[in-house]
Computed example of a mutant assay.
Amino acid sequence: MSPEPSPLHLAYSPCPNDTFVFDALAHGRVPGMPAPEVTFADIDITNGLAQQGRFDVLKVSYAVLPYILGTYTLLPCGGALGRGCGPLVLAREARADLSGGTVAVPSETSTAYLLFRLWAADTLPGGVGEIVVLPFHEIMPAVRDGKVDAGLVIHEARFTYRDYGLHKLADMGEHWERTTGLPIPLGAIVAKRSLGGAALTRLADAIRTSVRMAWEDPEASRPYVMEHAQEMDPAVADQHIGLYVNEFTADLGEDGYAAVRGLLTRAAAEGLVPALGPEALAFP
């Protein structure tokens, strides 16, 4: 008798959109798909893990794709794209001038950072001054306390920044959508090419099924979501899921792939990432 294959090892964030999407898969409720091993890590960590070739499947920033597509392939589902869900630049004053200013960002390998740099190239003639990388939860306090001139924030900060007395200086997503007409690409699901085409197709189908199961019975995922939501208010968690889990999560589709190619092509033209080959995003 041949030994049972080892379970897949997944790494994704504890954010509500990820736990909502992967709840059924993580708990072995997707028919025909054994429960994987799961490691929770913020996306800046999973970006680094992917560059080291760690884990079979990871949630990463689209910004890191040019560095990992030799080892991983982009799955056509499970990730985060959308409209009206872009990162924000926050400041203490509503009309702050950021030219030459210090900006705190959660990562320099994130999609949010690429969107910020593309926005800055279009709108800040003097350019940005110093970039400071801070843990996500430290950014809004640092802006509030005057330690930095502005902060780039993502996820639930869209709903909570006013609690810190801060103002939205710009919405990176609005700028992206206005200049491209495309949805905003944020987080990607990638899997090792070495798994093989058949296994990758089964995995993509299982993730789509997990997404559909979460939509059909949202309450089934709630314990998993709230267990890992880092003391987030349930209403904020629901807003988070509503914003980041949408039709592009079930399938990237033509517009989704166009958004990813558009982001990485523009970023390469600015010298922010290496250029992609014409077939780099092909699946499987």
Results as ranks from 00 to 15, higher is better:
residue 119 W to F: 14
residue 155 H to K: 10
residue 132 V to F: 07
residue 117 R to G: 03
residue 157 A to Q: 12
residue 185 P to R: 06
residue 162 R to E: 14
residue 178 R to D: 13
residue 144 R to T: 00
residue 160 T to L: 14
residue 139 I to C: 05
residue 133 V to S: 08
residue 173 G to R: 05
residue 199 A to H: 13
residue 166 L to M: 09
residue 179 T to R: 13
residue 146 G to L: 13
residue 116 F to L: 14
residue 198 A to I: 00
residue 121 A to T: 08
residue 169 L to Q: 11
residue 152 L to D: 07
residue 191 A to I: 10
residue 160 T to P: 00
residue 198 A to N: 13
residue 112 A to F: 02
residue 164 Y to E: 00
residue 169 L to I: 12
residue 135 P to F: 06
residue 185 P to F: 05
residue 193 R to C: 11
residue 198 A to K: 14
residue 153 V to A: 04
residue 183 P to Y: 03
residue 201 T to A: 15
residue 142 A to E: 05
residue 202 R to P: 04
residue 158 R to Y: 00
residue 161 Y to H: 14
residue 112 A to T: 03
residue 120 A to P: 02
residue 201 T to F: 07
residue 179 T to H: 08
residue 174 E to N: 08
residue 175 H to A: 14
residue 112 A to Q: 00
residue 107 S to K: 01
residue 155 H to T: 12
residue 111 T to M: 04
residue 179 T to V: 14
residue 170 A to V: 14
residue 189 I to M: 15
residue 138 E to N: 13
residue 122 D to T: 10
residue 135 P to T: 10
residue 156 E to G: 10
residue 110 S to G: 14
residue 175 H to V: 12
residue 178 R to A: 15
residue 182 L to H: 02
residue 147 K to Q: 15
residue 191 A to W: 06
residue 116 F to Y: 13
residue 127 G to S: 11
residue 148 V to E: 02
residue 151 G to P: 04
residue 161 Y to K: 02
residue 127 G to P: 08
residue 168 K to H: 09
residue 173 G to C: 11
residue 160 T to M: 13
residue 200 L to M: 11
residue 114 L to G: 02
residue 123 T to C: 13
residue 125 P to Q: 08
residue 197 G to F: 11
residue 168 K to V: 15
residue 142 A to D: 03
residue 167 H to T: 12
residue 202 R to T: 11
residue 149 D to P: 08
residue 126 G to H: 06
residue 183 P to A: 08
residue 144 R to M: 11
residue 174 E to T: 12
residue 196 G to N: 09
residue 158 R to T: 02
residue 143 V to R: 03
residue 148 V to A: 04
residue 192 K to G: 06
residue 181 G to N: 04
residue 111 T to S: 15
residue 168 K to I: 12
residue 128 V to A: 06
residue 144 R to L: 04
residue 143 V to Q: 03
residue 138 E to G: 03
residue 176 W to K: 06
residue 111 T to L: 05
residue 188 A to T: 06
residue 183 P to G: 02
residue 126 G to C: 05
residue 133 V to Q: 13
residue 117 R to Y: 01
residue 151 G to F: 03
residue 200 L to A: 08
residue 116 F to G: 00
residue 151 G to V: 01
residue 196 G to V: 07
residue 133 V to E: 15
residue 108 E to H: 08
residue 186 L to D: 07
residue 112 A to H: 02
residue 113 Y to A: 03
residue 185 P to C: 07
residue 196 G to D: 11
residue 126 G to L: 03
residue 161 Y to G: 00
residue 132 V to G: 02
residue 143 V to T: 10
residue 176 W to F: 12
residue 174 E to R: 13
residue 182 L to W: 04
residue 202 R to A: 15
residue 123 T to F: 01
residue 132 V to D: 01
residue 131 I to D: 04
residue 120 A to R: 01
residue 202 R to K: 15
residue 188 A to K: 06
residue 194 S to T: 14
residue 143 V to K: 03
residue 159 F to C: 00
residue 120 A to V: 01
residue 118 L to Q: 02
residue 123 T to L: 03
residue 181 G to P: 05
residue 177 E to P: 01
residue 137 H to F: 09
residue 146 G to A: 12
residue 124 L to N: 09
residue 165 G to S: 13
residue 187 G to C: 12
residue 117 R to L: 11
residue 160 T to Q: 13
residue 125 P to Y: 07
